[in-house]
Design a protein around this nucleic acid. Sequence first.
DNA 1: CCACCGCAGCATTGTCGCAG
DNA 2: CTGCGACAATGCTGCGGTGG
Length: 192
Amino acid sequence: MELWNKNVEKRFFTKSLEYATPEQLFYITNENKYLAYWPKNYLGKKSTLQSRNSLIGNFTEKWTTDLIQRIVEDEGLFAVQGAKCSEIALLNNSPADVIISKNKNIEQEPENILAIFEVKMSIVWNWEFKNNKSDMNLICMGDYNTHQGNPGLLRSDSMLKAIGKSINIRVSSLKASTIPIIIIGNTPITNT
DNA sequence: CCACCGCAGCATTGTCGCAG
DNA sequence: CTGCGACAATGCTGCGGTGG
């Protein structure tokens, strides 16, 4: 089974470029390079992208849903993205990233939910986007050691947010108290 | 009943101060 | 200098309250 890798990241950018502009997906350096992250030694002017957030968030949740779907489908179960269940505090403006359920509906009952996943994933490698008239392509500029981005799983405030949401689900109802809640990320591991 | 407004929550990642 | 906690930034979307 294919886990998160460079090809998946390439697919995110090529797919997203079908309907988003390069400026929404990449930082532009003072040398006019389009990069996914600011390199560690970069000293020029910097900004913080907001426009990529929902795109990468949605992509990683979809990717995770597909992965889990392949794992549970033999059991007759379903992975559902963005599931809602008012009884356990999964409302319209705060749905579950991914759940495993006995059915594939967006509207769910607590009794059918076997597990809840909170996805905290993003781009791991750094990429340069070259936009030549004839062909565009993505060049890997190095791994997470070469850029400034800090993976979500290593950030305490990201984890607190995920844990806080888990607590909110836990205390929402007795029925939520037995549902496992899993935080899933794609942080690379050092020295492998 | 509907248009509008403010607030809260979603997402990710850069910045800054402090400790060691 | 590095690592870490706390805070900032901002587009999008849903919801509740209010005024007409």
